[in-house]
Computed example of a mutant assay.
Amino acid sequence: MSVEQFEQFVLPHLSRGRRGPAPTLGLHKIFNYILQSLYMGCQWKALPIERNAEGRPEIHYTRIYRALRRWQADGCIDAIFAGSVYRLHQDQLLDLTVIHGNGTTTAAKKGGDNLGYSGHKHLKGDKVVAFCDRRCNVIAPFVSAPGNRNESPLLRDALPRLSHMARAIGMDLQGSTVSLDGVYDCRANRKAIFNRGMIPNTPENPRGRKTSKRGRKLRFDPAIFEERFRTIERIFAWEDKFRRLLLRFERLSPVHYAFKTLAYTMINMRHYR
């Protein structure tokens, strides 16, 4: 990330220390080291750090990790993501006529908190549910849960966050279509979407029924549903570009979710590179 991009998108949301001497290394360089760790997926002690004039590393890797933990605890990472969505909305780069949502599961090989065994994926890890628009921009903070949790109830926890994000940046979601997979097909989810002024577009889940369900057919547009593979699934494919998110090696879930938030922020900022 260049200095101009850092000062425009990141620096206004970062907290700074109030005591002690001024750091010898700028926040721009520290933030770029965090992004480098996100892209490379290496251990913190294996992070390639530049040498100073004396031939020593210009910063110790533990200071970079502590900076990430401080910004995560202060809410700076979430503020950077919200700022990217606000900038996209101001520049009219969002297409909110259709909102696509889905969940993804990340395997955890070394253990940690907030984990569960997914019998469908045959792995132990955690899952997240995220929303995006028709232009492959992540617009809402994701909801995290252990891998053994069903995704359908998680949607009712994610919708309030979507509404909160819309109110925070001035987005209007009235009349938007929410396109979801068949796993989210239930009366409670449809009611939650209708109560927020949006229209659900979810294929009917037969749930093992041998005959069709009686009553009026639910509203469903196959053309909108097919867009999911060019939007939300593409975002999850872009997420795999960040090697630190292919497998979860972070034992602390807040650190792992902070990296995911940074990855979604970088996906949103592709318009300004």
Score class of each variant (00 low, 15 high):
Pro23Cys: 01
Thr265Phe: 08
Ser144Phe: 10
Glu226Trp: 10
Ile139Lys: 01
Gly175Trp: 04
Phe81Ala: 11
Phe6Ser: 02
Ser15Asp: 02
Ala158Cys: 07
His256Asn: 13
Ala73Glu: 05
Arg196Ala: 05
Arg135Gln: 15
Leu173Asp: 06
Pro146Tyr: 01
Asp78Glu: 14
Glu54Asp: 08
Arg248Ser: 02
Glu227Pro: 03
Leu247Ala: 01
Lys124Ala: 07
Asp91Trp: 02
Thr261Met: 02
Gly111Tyr: 07
Ile59Gly: 04
Ala22Ile: 10
Tyr65Met: 09
Gly215Ala: 11
Asp240Arg: 14
Met1Ile: 04
Ala188Tyr: 14
Val183Gly: 11
Thr62Met: 07
Pro222Ser: 02
Asn137Ser: 15
Leu180Ala: 12
Lys121His: 13
Arg187Pro: 05
Arg69Ile: 04
Ile59Ser: 00
Trp71Asp: 03
Ala258Ile: 01
Trp44Gly: 10
Lys45Asp: 14
Gly26Tyr: 12
Asp113Tyr: 02
Met198Ala: 03
Asn52Asp: 15
Met1Ser: 04
Arg216His: 01
Ser2His: 04
Ser118Leu: 04
Arg234Pro: 00
His120Val: 12
Leu96Ala: 00
Ala223Pro: 03
Gln36Asn: 07
Ala107Gly: 05
Val255Thr: 15
Thr231Asn: 14
Gln36Lys: 13
Glu7Ile: 02
Val138Arg: 01
Phe242Leu: 04
Glu58Trp: 02
Gly197Phe: 06
Ile193Glu: 10
Lys260Ser: 13
Gly26His: 14
Trp238Ser: 11
Thr106Ile: 03
Gln8Arg: 15
Cys132Phe: 02
Arg273Val: 15
Leu246Phe: 13
Thr105Pro: 00
Gln8Trp: 09
Val128Cys: 02
Ser118Lys: 13
Arg167His: 15
Phe81Val: 11
Ala188Asn: 07
Gly83Cys: 05
Ala107Trp: 06
Phe220Lys: 11
Gly41Leu: 07
Arg135Cys: 06
Pro23Gln: 05
Gln43Asp: 04
Ala67Gln: 09
Ala67Phe: 15
Phe259Val: 09
Phe249Gln: 08
Asp113Leu: 10
Ser2Leu: 09
Ile80Tyr: 02
Ser84Lys: 03
Phe249Lys: 05
Gly215Thr: 08
Ser2Met: 03
Thr24Gly: 15
Gly197Trp: 03
Pro254Leu: 11
Ile224Gly: 01
Phe225Asn: 07
Phe6Val: 04
Asn102Arg: 07
Gln36Arg: 14
Phe6Thr: 00
Gln8Tyr: 12
His28Glu: 14
Asn148Arg: 06
Ser176Glu: 13
Gly116Arg: 08
Ala22Tyr: 09
Ile99Phe: 05
Arg219Gly: 12
Arg149Asn: 03
Leu25Asn: 04
Ala258Tyr: 09
Tyr65Phe: 10
Ser84Met: 11
Tyr117Arg: 03
His89Asn: 08
Asp181Thr: 12
Lys109Ala: 03
Tyr61Phe: 14
Val98Arg: 01
Ser212His: 11
Asn148Ser: 10
